[in-house]
Design a protein around this nucleic acid. Structure first.
Lengths: 342, 342
DNA sequence: AAACGAACCGAAAAGGTTTTCCGTGAAGCT
DNA sequence: AGCTTCACGGAAAACCTTTTCGGTTCGTTT
């Protein structure tokens, strides 16, 4: 009953179909299509035309079964919803797509059980490697050393130093942010940032202080930790202006916070950037370009993190293992909210 | 040289390894692990333990090769960056993950050539079906009727009515938005929306007008089309207030526009929601909850669109084809920016 | 005791591709 | 003419799992 190539939808052509149509053996057809040299040019041409006519696509399953390599990798995110996973994922997909590698996407939704389940499923499909994408930069548990394929951790590093992790340089990000404000001639710089439980918040503050110290300066007051929201940005700014009305720059832990900061600054009659310069982190387009004025922000180069992770996985699959945490530099994107003091 | 199970990383165990360890044939091992009935309980136990010890995972490639079904689907997005693809993708991933189906993610980046390339690659991997996710609701070209696997279009419908498409009900969205404003006692409702080249903008306006007409009312002025930005929301609101200072509600084409609208309303001394109610579309958390007051918005239920697409693909793979454009209802999420007139 | 049935297990084929090895024929050389 | 060399094409194994079908063993029945 099943062989009716009939009405609806025929099976895809197989290599033996091509061989039959071209009047050669399966082996010859394979060699002709793969550019092997043991086949006459004329024969090769005949095979190629036959494959064309049948719109033959080699079955990657069979190929993978034989080769022991499938040309697939697993991309395991812990949180698709969060906006940090997406650019990383794009970078990785981009890097792999160019190399004929297909990507299995799995979202663990922050659940370790589900993550374990996905890992097992991916290994059953014989992926050549795994990329684990976190939703924040705090270290996360390793998947273990016993996996049969290489693993690269992106954004959230593994707790096990034997694993390879690719993360943005948060300390450096704090540094270059302050360097930019210093270059704008600011010297009374405050720092309003988010949840102190986030390593990124701590590291950016460390970098900012280090850059100020190098210039013989210090923050105006202590860093103000809170939550990653506009509301906190507004509240913290109100307090800041009460205590330090002479502040000439505010470095904000995120673009959202910066948005709130700028609103209150404007409401209180401080001009941005003439009186107070404002910077954010993350360079989240929808916020930076909607602000008045557009917001200068530190871009974490997440797409590049994804690409680097993909590249590292490539080389690991080829046999060259690395380990440890590798950091990638961030960059300042200058917009209207920061400008030299006139 | 290759058989050294040696130092670094051994090959995954195969069924014949398990069979050998358990002292049975390959066939029996397979039957034991798959719950077939022709094997003694004690033997089955022995096999299961052997599989456990070797941490055996059946090779899905071999299984797929044999069964003709791979348990994989392709998810083809035209634009990962845009925020509409992500929830759809999450819904689809969620629905498939529960069913032991793995998802290949491909991002065409809005390029038809790249899309074609990805389709070919996916077919080479013998996916059982395809979901095509668009970045806007305007119809897009079909992948064609000649594909060997079923295809479901999500968010952006196919131009070919023979294809199956799942989209949110934009006209209905406009309707329920106005219905909500009417229920709040508003009667002088303006509409500030985005790019008129977007079908979503047109359809929402159509729905809004229809709901008003049903109540014997009309919009305050014409719908104001522009771009999907806060800046446009601010500019349009300024004009609106000049011409119609007595407006008591503004229906905005997106949450971004709504954000701009609210800013200007407040600056001009109009209270939200006491004097003017404001609504947006998309229910984009980061904007709706950061607004002052939090923004009432129409949620397009995109995750549900993704789930429905996955489900439709499931049944199509099982043989039950549908066709045409199926719409899913949207829902109003009420927050502080709309309230009954006191 | 012979025959029968049930329960259990194994051999083998199938799925599609790549690769190795062998065979055939022709051309080149002495 | 007889030999080697070369170019080309084909047979078959391998990858791993599932399933069908046939075979063995043991207990039961007449």
């Amino acid at each position: 009953m099943a062989q009716a190539t009939g009405p609806s939808r025929s099976q895809p052509a197989t290599l033996s179909d091509v061989a039959r149509l071209a009047g050669v053996s399966i082996a010859t057809a394979s060699k002709a299509l793969n550019g092997r040299s043991q086949v006459r040019a004329e024969t090769r041409q005949r095979v190629i035309e036959a494959a064309e006519r049948l719109s033959f696509r080699p079955n990657q399953l069979a190929r993978g079964l034989l080769a022991g390599r499938t040309g697939t990798v697993g991309l395991l995110t812990s949180d698709l919803e969060g906006r940090f996973s997406i650019p990383i994922l794009m970078g990785a997909e981009d890097a792999f797509g160019a190399g004929e590698v297909a990507v299995f996407l799995c979202d663990a939704r922050g659940d370790a059980i589900r993550e374990q389940h996905h890992v097992r499923a991916l290994l059953g499909r014989r992926v050549d490697g795994l990329i684990v994408v976190g939703s924040r930069t705090d270290p996360r548990p390793s998947l273990g050393r016993e996996l049969p394929v290489p693993v690269v951790y992106a954004y959230a590093p593994s707790e096990d130093p034997a694993d390879l992790s690719i993360v943005p340089d948060s300390v450096g990000a704090g540094r270059i942010a302050v360097d930019h404000l210093l270059a704008c001639g600011r010297s009374r710089i405050a720092h309003i940032t988010g949840d102190p439980g986030y390593l990124a918040a701590q590291e950016r503050a460390v970098g900012a202080r280090a850059a100020l110290a190098d210039a013989g300066l210090a923050l105006v007051g202590e860093p103000r930790f809170g939550v990653w929201s506009e509301g906190w940005g507004r509240a913290a700014t109100a307090m800041l202006l009460d205590q330090h009305p002479d502040v000439d720059a505010v470095l904000c832990g995120s673009d959202q916070i910066a948005r709130g900061v700028m609103d209150v600054l404007r409401e209180r009659g401080h001009r941005v950037p003439e009186d107070v310069a404002v910077m954010g982190f993350d360079n989240w387009q929808v916020l930076t370009s909607a602000s008045r004025p557009p917001l200068t922000s530190v871009d974490m180069n997440l797409e590049q993190v994804g690409r680097a992770a993909a590249h590292a996985l490539f080389t690991a699959i080829a046999g060259a293992r690395r380990s440890g945490v590798e950091t990638l530099p961030c960059r300042v994107v200058i917009r209207g909210s920061t400008a030299p003091l006139s």
